[in-house]
Design a binder for these strands. Structure first.
Lengths: 158, 158
DNA sequence: TATTGTTATACTCTATAACTATA
DNA sequence: TATAGTTATAGAGTATAACAATA
């Protein structure tokens, strides 16, 4: 719980519960704070209201390629979950006509999952919402965003 | 999935799945990527190994004041969860001798929860791990961290 | 009558293990 | 014998509703 900020000898220091916080700790705290943007989740909740689709299958739509079929296993890999978990997820999507399972042409053990046209439209919506920055980003100039991007690249292992 | 980066007319542009990404989108993506630091969770998993304490009660330790008693209701508020959920959490902490419930001196409906000495030690450990930035932060100079902090302050609603 | 905490119950997300069909 | 997907089951995290005690 931040209670104030003061400047001493040109150094701006955030104060948390009476304890001074160094720049690295503040950056870390703010990165996590910003990343928990309620706005991003708002779209998901709205889709839940509209379609009754739970969050888990929405996450599947998020990682499903728009114009390419991938196997159940590949989908599990993209979701970072177990193979078995993906079955009821695709069941749900299929039950709502958002995706279809097809047999793999050469390997009959494999099923590929492919978005239908309505599924593709919804996936596009989910993916766009996910990649769209919060409104507060508009408070930075292009130059500032460039600087920020360069600094974050140094922090990002990827 | 980022596949490359190229520079054209002095502008550095990240390329994702063949599509150019603007600075704001890249900043947003990296903020979320950095915030999902596995290092922070590693300590929690280690504590789970050592003590058998699940993640949920560890979260309680994270928000419990080290040297002050708060009510169940206040703890629920800090955790952002329902009142009823906090009961089994405190049961667990109490069962392990990490905290105690005491009656509120003036309002007998209220119970205050207070860390024991071992609970306080573990809470300190959890809280320190939580507020410690990932190692990659060492790649930035103090000046760069200051710049980064100032830019993030503009994005942070708090 | 409103509020604090508890109990009972149920729902969501996710994993493990055992199984089937195919390779 | 190894792999893709499914089924059955279980566990973690969390909420809602009903309840008891106190205010």
């Amino acid at each position: 719980m931040m209670v104030g900020m003061f400047s001493s000898s040109g150094e701006s220091v955030a104060v948390i519960d009476g304890q001074a916080e160094d720049a690295a700790a503040e950056v870390w705290r703010r990165i996590r704070s910003i990343s928990h943007d309620p706005q991003a989740m708002a779209v998901c909740h709205q889709i839940t209201q509209e379609t009754g689709l739970a969050l888990a299958p929405q996450r599947a739509l998020l990682v499903l390629p728009l114009d390419e079929a991938i196997s159940m296993r590949q989908l599990a890999r993209r979701l970072g979950c177990d193979n078995s978990y993906v079955t009821p997820l695709v069941d749900t999507l299929e039950g709502r006509g958002l995706a279809v399972r097809r047999p793999h042409p050469s390997d009959r053990r494999v099923k590929v999952i492919e978005l239908t046209e309505p599924g593709r439209a919804l996936a596009e919506r989910v993916q766009l919402a996910d990649s769209t920055p919060p409104d507060t980003f508009g408070q930075l100039t292009e130059a500032e965003l460039g600087t920020l991007r360069d600094l974050l690249r140094k922090l990002d292992p990827v």
